[in-house]
């Protein structure tokens, strides 16, 4: 088994969906999460609060700094993610297709490094 991170990428231009749409999405993602858990593939996952709520900490210099906002100036940011266990990339891609349909966003599939597992 390999751990894969399935990232849901958002952009700053994305419009905030209506409450109704959000509720519907929470429900489908919930069902998908249950399916992952039952299959024994679930490791962790969740949706993140809006990008404005992030804070960046950098302790690589002499003195740690704390800055308001995201690390990157990029227009894309992580909106949520799953970490799953899968036998191989084909299985991970299959879960990613379901996850993408459930959350209504593109999903990036990336394996964890062997050495970190």
């Amino acid at each position: 088994m390999t751990k894969y991170m399935l990232s849901v990428v958002g952009t700053v231009d994305d419009e905030m969906p209506s409450d109704e749409v959000m509720q519907e999405m929470y429900a489908t993602v919930g069902r998908f999460n249950d399916k992952l858990t039952e299959a024994g593939k679930w490791v962790f996952g969740g949706g993140l609060a809006p990008i404005e709520s992030s804070t960046t900490v950098d302790a690589t210099g002499d003195k740690p700094t704390v800055t308001d906002g995201p690390f990157s100036e990029a227009k894309e940011f992580l909106g949520g993610f799953w970490i799953i266990e899968a036998a191989d990339l084909d299985e991970a891609l299959q879960w990613a297709k379901e996850g993408s349909a459930a959350c209504g966003g593109a999903v990036e599939v990336r394996p964890f490094d062997d050495a970190s597992q």
Binding site: T2, A87, D88, L89, D90, V109, R110, P111, D113, D114
Partner: peptide
Amino acid sequence: AKIAKARIP
């Protein structure tokens, strides 16, 4: 490297 790391079966 991708075949190995991402475990393309």
